[in-house]
C-alpha cells in the first residue's frame, strides 16, 4: 500500500489524532498527537490493511529551535507465513510524535511491539524522553549515574567521571570548529 493510502486511512480513522502528513519527503511519515499515539499504534499493528508487525527503529530527535523533542517510529510489515492476510504486505511507514521539550512524555508502545522496549530505553538515555508505562525505563547505554542526555543539542560534555579526567588541556584550549 502506498504511503498516501495509509495516510488517508489514518486520517479517516483518527481525524484530529493525525496532525500532519509529510508525503513529499524521501521517506514519507505522519505526525500524530501524543495522546492518541497508543490507539494509533494498536491500529497500525492489528488492522488488516496495516499489519505493521515489526517495529524497526525508534529515533529520538531534538528539535531545539521549536523547543520540542520527537520520536520517530519506523514500522514494517513482514510477511510471516501462516499469519493470515499480512502474507502479501510489505509496506514501510513512519510515525512521528512530537512533545514539548520541558515535559517530554510519550506513551510507551512496548506492550504493542516488545522490540520497542530497548529502543525506548535508548531514547530515554540519549534524549531524555520519558515513556510512560514502560516496564523498565532506565539508562541502557550510559552508566546509571550519568548526568544529562548526551544527544541533546545543548548537551555539555563532562569534564570528569569518577576521577577519570574526560578532557585534556589541549582540547579545552584548542579552537572549536
Amino acid at each position: 500500500m502506498a504511503p498516501e493510502e495509509i495516510c488517508i486511512i489514518l486520517t479517516g480513522e483518527f481525524g484530529d489524532g493525525v496532525v500532519d502528513t509529510v508525503l513529499d519527503a524521501c521517506r514519507p511519515y505522519a505526525v500524530v498527537r501524543v495522546d492518541g499515539w497508543s490507539d494509533i499504534a494498536r491500529f497500525l499493528r492489528d488492522d488488516g490493511r496495516m499489519r505493521f508487525n515489526m517495529l524497526q527503529c525508534v529515533t529520538a530527535l531534538d528539535l531545539l529551535e521549536d523547543n520540542k523533542l520527537a520520536a520517530v517510529y519506523d514500522l514494517f510489515s513482514v510477511p510471516v507465513v501462516g499469519v493470515g492476510p499480512c502474507a502479501t504486505l510489505r509496506q514501510h511507514f513512519a510515525i512521528r510524535v512530537e512533545v514539548d521539550r520541558d515535559a517530554p512524555h510519550i506513551p510507551s508502545v512496548s506492550g504493542i511491539w516488545p522490540a520497542a522496549e530497548w529502543h525506548e530505553r535508548e531514547a530515554y538515555d540519549m534524549m531524555g524522553i520519558v515513556f510512560d508505562d514502560h516496564p523498565n525505563l532506565t539508562r541502557i547505554l550510559c552508566p546509571d549515574d550519568w548526568e544529562g542526555y548526551p544527544l541533546r543539542k545543548d548537551y555539555e560534555f563532562p569534564l570528569e567521571y569518577h576521577g577519570i579526567p574526560a578532557t585534556t588541556e589541549h582540547q579545552l584550549n584548542s579552537p572549536r570548529h
Binding site: 508487525n53 515489526m54 517495529l55 524497526q56 513482514v78 510477511p79 510471516v80 507465513v81 499469519v83 510489505r90 511491539w113 516488545p114 522490540a115
Partner: peptide
C-alpha cells in the same frame, strides 16, 4: 517466527525461525 517478528529480530536469527525474509530478495 511470531516472536522473532515481534521482537524485530532480523538476519540469520529471523530466517532460522523459518521466516523467509531477506532484504536482498524482498
Amino acid at each position: 517466527a511470531d516472536d522473532a517478528v515481534r521482537w524485530a529480530l532480523t538476519g540469520p536469527v529471523l530466517r532460522a525461525s523459518g521466516v523467509n525474509w531477506d532484504l536482498r530478495k524482498s
